[in-house]
Write a protein that binds this DNA or RNA. Structure first.
Lengths: 342, 342
DNA sequence: CCGCCGATTCAAAGCGCTTTAAATTTTTCT
DNA sequence: AGAAAAATTTAAAGCGCTTTGAATCGGCGG
């Protein structure tokens, strides 16, 4: 059943039927009701392909997800972010076009989306220090929103969490407990967020007159194994080992916890741990037994909000850059305690 | 730059230019070269919306991912599967339309995709015991492929792993090592794959004259916390505790390992563990320190293959149902050893 | 030199919808 | 009642591409 047939069956023109269905005002109320009833009865759904061509709008938003590292890893954060964004897209009638490609193919993916008009805008996640994607989509003229931020971030729209403050505050929390040998198990420091986190950590230490020790700082992709190996290595230096860890993800924190256990130490007593928690749905820090002390900010909620903002940017391009900075909350769990004596 | 302009600039008709670009034979070679050069120089990309309307093909494949459980969890398997499938889609010129929706919205999502013609086919993942999605897409007339299988699985196309055999074999491996109290930390047994795995496990035990003990069998969403709590609970019954665990995912296996450690037991000595490993990129069992003994099958590779098969089904609908059963391999790691005496 | 054929190229229709400009009907006002 | 204004409906153009059916062109056999 298409528009033409539906219109014919009603003895109306396509124009009127189209308008009735799309809520235009120049249709008599009685007619609108009749059309809507007939459309429903016939199970009529406008053909998306035709509609997109006629309106020039794709009603689709593109997400290009780069595979990272030599093992082509998919950052597990993406699925929760997508779930959040997808919720809003569905509500607003947008489709989500997903492109998961090797780092080297990212530019091509964006260019293609822009050139063939299959999307109305794109979402950019996890920017690196000087991320080429931002100038790229700017020149392509694609509306976009960045989850995170980097470079000259006054000039575009983004939503980010206060990484610097969160890690500064977490560090201060540990310092207040008497810890002085605090290790940082950071994410990859090619990523902008990781750099901010390190600065927050370093600033907190320096403010208390402690010089950050490179031997206590690691940076890598945030897997469980990385957390384990990094922590095991540091803990092996018995007397000089860290008494606290500041970790960039729950996944890596699980690895650190394992290393602490393997070293015969007790978490929350001999060694403290604070992790950043993206509140991923399959890694619930609250529900699955005792919780880590954590700086928390839901990636899914961020996905929802990012989608809302991006749609607004697409619909009303005249609104200038939109920026939102979220403050993670620090929740105290069992994994922190006073520094052990000595 | 659109077709019309490009054709005009070449002094050719749209027809000829379109044909030249799409590799039709009735174009002189010299003309084709000239057209291709001009298209490249002008950076011409055909408008996807117009092409879709004209051809009636969406060149898009839909993935509908249901949020599961009360916490709307996103199964972490999806991102790796998507990465695999997306690789093939990109290569074959297909787009990936992703819809992440609540369980209750799944039907609507499929119906909409079918009615408005935004996809040429759909991928179905993780079927439940009697999954309503399969009859649904069948009546909708949408080409589809199931990753996994259930019900009357002769009548449609699927790709699955030999869950029964894998878990039977893993159980036998433990039995051969002298274990008799073997626990099963299974996935949610509303899922078809989990039922097959349990049957494999039960069959192996029964073949050796051991009656499966309900107290040694758990079923839930495969999180780390679930693995931890389930194992901790079983290990608390000192003398009668299991000496080996058969686990459905690396994530849960990490939880089981933690419970074993917390109970003061040594993995691979006091307690053995075999897990199924989907070879997710961010949970690398080989690289991140000592590896679990595991039945392995890459979900990403499955995604790739599923995409290939689905495209074939879409392009040549006359080919009957395609079915593929993959055999996981059993790789021996440090987490298994002979049953302790007593 | 003419008609026929295969090789190329082209004009125009069509995909199913939205939207502009015009036509028709209804209402309002004097 | 009649004209102007407002409300409603319609025909037709257009979105940018593919594809059908027809036209053009050069070469070949008779």
């Amino acid at each position: 059943m298409n528009l033409k047939e539906l219109a014919a069956s009603l003895g109306l023109s396509q124009t009127t039927v189209s308008r009735a269905l799309n809520g235009y005002p120049e249709v008599r109320e009685e007619t609108r009701l009749r059309v809507e009833a007939a459309a429903k009865a016939a199970g009529y759904q406008p053909n998306a392909r035709a509609r997109r061509l006629a309106t020039g709008r794709a009603m689709t938003i593109g997400h290009v997800i780069p595979l990272s590292g030599e093992s082509d890893m998919v950052n597990p954060i993406f699925s929760d972010f997508l779930a959040g964004a997808g919720e809003v897209y569905a509500r607003e009638g947008y489709d989500l076009l997903l492109s998961i490609v090797a780092e080297s193919e990212v530019e091509r993916a964006f260019r293609q989306m822009a050139a063939n008009g299959s999307v109305d805008g794109v979402m950019i996640q996890g920017p690196k220090r000087e991320d080429p994607r931002i100038p790229l989509v700017q020149t392509l003229g694609l509306p976009f929103l960045v989850h995170g931020r980097t470079g000259d971030y006054d000039s575009y729209s983004w939503l980010d969490i206060a990484n610097f403050r969160a890690f500064k505050r977490a560090s201060e929390f540990l310092l207040d407990l008497g810890h002085t040998r605090i290790a940082l198990i950071n994410g990859l420091e090619t990523m902008d967020f990781a750099i901010r986190r390190r600065k927050g950590y370093e600033t907190a230490l320096q403010d208390r007159g402690i010089a950050p020790d490179p031997a206590f700082m690691r940076s890598d992709t945030m897997t469980e194994g990385y957390g384990y190996l990094a922590a095991a290595d540091m803990l092996a230096r018995s007397a000089l080992r860290p008494t606290a860890f500041l970790v960039s993800s729950v996944m890596s924190a699980m690895g650190v916890r394992r290393a602490i256990g393997d070293a015969g130490l007790r978490l929350g007593k001999d060694v403290s741990l604070i992790t950043h928690d993206d509140v991923l749905s399959y890694l619930n820090n609250d529900r699955d037994g005792p919780a880590f002390t954590a700086t928390k900010s839901s990636v899914r909620a961020a996905g929802r909000r990012c989608a809302e903002i991006l749609i607004k940017i697409i619909v009303s391009p005249e609104t200038g850059p939109v920026q939102e900075l979220w403050e993670p909350e620090l929740t105290v769990g069992y994994s922190t305690g006073p520094a052990p004596p000595g």
